[in-house]
């Protein structure tokens, strides 16, 4: 169908046709840039001239200054430094656990959607049963028993508990892609299963997967915050994370209510990071015109 016909048909049916494939837009690039800066800072933190996060550098509760861009916390630690180092934990948990979830749930979901039949029924009933279970409770329970806590353990627990969700999303995406003609065509031509899954199915579920991956990272970063509030994440004196910084700030604000930078900066950084992830994920999804997969 040519563009002309689309326009004419749109007028003919008197339905306003929403503009498909909205331009990517400046705000999307701002978000991408913001995400990139955070990832770079997290990766390069040891090399950058960032104040040591655990050293009590200065007076507690100092306001913003050139020496301490975001001031100091109630132990005199540099907030900017702690935020920069904290991104290592927060991003690490987010990206690490999603790597596990997608590494296991992605191939399983695609396989189930591709093979259908018994394999799909068995895997899906197991996965969907797990999905019915509120995973946060399982995460809280396991983490509270599995001591001493470490970044690795947190990543593993969140990662494994997210497998069923990723499985469902990827299975749904692969199901809709797998019913398309080119997959049937490849199958008729006698292509091997593995080849079809990687060459035909994967490129088609990749946009859905990528946008869901971004949403997933955003959710897990928030989840790390919840765990920090419950005292189940990394302890703040071992290493800062955005979550435990906010929790620290919350507790000390009860005593020193005037030190607002203490809570505003970490919570703003966390929310802005999640916002950027959500926004880019959303744009990706509408750009590739993927029908909304229910999360």
């Amino acid at each position: 169908m040519t563009n002309n016909e689309v326009v004419i048909n749109a007028a003919e049916s008197v339905v306003e046709q929403p503009e498909k494939k909205a331009p990517i837009g400046i705000f999307t690039w701002i978000c991408v840039g913001w995400l990139a800066i955070n990832v770079l800072v997290a990766v390069l933190a040891p090399l950058l001239p960032i104040p040591d996060p655990n050293e009590m550098i200065s007076m507690p509760g100092m306001g913003m200054s050139f020496d301490h861009l975001m001031g100091t916390d109630d132990l005199g630690r540099d907030i900017f430094g702690r935020l920069a180092w904290g991104s290592r934990i927060s991003l690490g948990v987010g990206i690490g656990s999603m790597a596990i979830a997608f590494g296991v749930g992605g191939p399983l979901g695609m396989l189930a959607a591709y093979r259908r039949g018994k394999m799909d029924v068995i895997m899906s009933s197991v996965m969907f049963t797990f999905l019915a279970f509120p995973s946060i409770i399982a995460i809280i329970a396991v983490l509270s028993f599995w001591t001493p806590r470490s970044l690795g353990k947190i990543i593993i627990v969140i990662g494994i508990s997210s497998i069923p969700l990723v499985y469902r999303v990827m299975r749904a995406a692969a199901l809709s892609a797998g019913s398309k003609e080119y997959v049937t065509a490849a199958r008729v031509q006698g292509a091997r299963d593995r080849r079809i899954i990687f060459r035909e199915l994967l490129p088609n579920v990749a946009p859905t997967g990528l946008s869901f991956l971004l949403f997933g990272v955003a959710t897990v970063i928030a989840l790390e915050g919840v765990l920090a509030f419950l005292g189940l994440s990394i302890a703040p004196d071992i290493a800062p994370s955005w979550g435990n910084m906010i929790n620290d700030a919350r507790q000390s604000l009860n005593n020193v209510p005037q030190n607002w930078p203490l809570i505003i900066f970490p919570s703003a950084i966390l929310c802005l990071f999640i916002l950027a992830l959500n926004f880019v994920g959303d744009r990706l999804r509408s750009y590739f015109d993927v029908t909304e997969v229910k999360l």
Partner: peptide, 21 residues
């Protein structure tokens, strides 16, 4: 033919065109 404006015409006669644009 489709696209000749006949559907739009019938709706406009009735005043039933979309409210915007």
């Amino acid at each position: 033919e489709s696209g000749s404006g006949k559907t739009v015409l019938s709706r406009t006669i009735m005043g039933l065109q979309p409210r915007t644009n």
